[in-house]
Design a protein around this nucleic acid. Sequence first.
DNA 1: GTCTATACGCGGATAGAC
DNA 2: GTCTATCCGCGTATAGAC
Lengths: 194, 194
Amino acid sequence: MGAAEPIAGLRSGPYTAPQARIIAAAVELFSDHGVSGTSLQMIADTIGVTKAAVYHQFKTKDEIVLAAAEAELARLEAALDAAGAEPSRTRTREVLVTHIVDLAVQRRHAVSVILSDPVIIPFFSQHEPFRRVLDRLNRLLMGDDAGSAGRLATTMLMAAISGAVMHPLFADLDNDTLRPELLHLARRFLDLPG
Amino acid sequence: MGAAEPIAGLRSGPYTAPQARIIAAAVELFSDHGVSGTSLQMIADTIGVTKAAVYHQFKTKDEIVLAAAEAELARLEAALDAAGAEPSRTRTREVLVTHIVDLAVQRRHAVSVILSDPVIIPFFSQHEPFRRVLDRLNRLLMGDDAGSAGRLATTMLMAAISGAVMHPLFADLDNDTLRPELLHLARRFLDLPG
DNA sequence: GTCTATACGCGGATAGAC
DNA sequence: GTCTATCCGCGTATAGAC
């Protein structure tokens, strides 16, 4: 089964030590200032090197953004793995939506790294590994036979969850209040009881 | 009643002719290249003037973005007006969700102007007129007594709808196919029949 | 009032020396 | 691998022509 295997091209590694330092600094800065609000200079200053040194590790800023986004995407893959191991389809959907909500709440700020930037979205929709993750997510949620209607529902659910956790109007809502309400509404969208 | 009155500060006008030309060009360019992907130079070139001439009409790029976003937001207000005139609360919700879906599908690309840019979202959450539109939307959808749970549901619904119409994976889905499916899922989220 | 000319500082990006 | 130096385009800003 390919279910438990990492998707080709979606490497969380292998990165060299300098690359890993850059990614770590980037994720932190992207979360605080947004992608476009973070300059290579800021990343360079954070790890104490020059802008050109950063450039030697990653040819473009987009590559850094992509690496940071892939790190977040890998968490979603882990949720797919866990849900796929459940015995029934109902259980799969229940576990999956719960994990996704948990993940979204837990990584609240970082969700914007992968979803809120205009650079990433068009890029990822051309990105084979990303599409395969979405396909797998869609199959687990909606079943193998769901067509464009199923994909639309999956897209809406993901947009709804990430839109909610990212929204500034709920920035001061603490995780323990947000999570159950979010889960309840997500389950209702999926026609799950509760 | 303030329901039918335009919200103070949310002017679609009055703009001078040069300003209106800039806004029109900006909306077009933002839709095609995104906000941060659109430079003042591109706007200037489109209407055949210099960058400084654009800068003379609007002191910052953010002001242009705001004006473009307000033009889109005014369309949402019109939907609120229409829905608010319905006799029953059920009818209000039905008409409102239908108009919002229609608007989102019809203005597919432009939705990103108001919702997808990292610059706009934090800015608008501080923007009084915008908050009042959101409050009014929330009351019409969820009722006067709905607290943070109602606001969360409203946020999720709007994020789901706009996320769906903006998603590149559905860019090739034509409007007449997208609209009914979107409406169906949105209604289900609101516990409306059908 | 509307525009042009010009400039500053910062952004991403590149070339070549150590 | 990291540096210095440099490039061009960006948003921003001002002075002044018509």
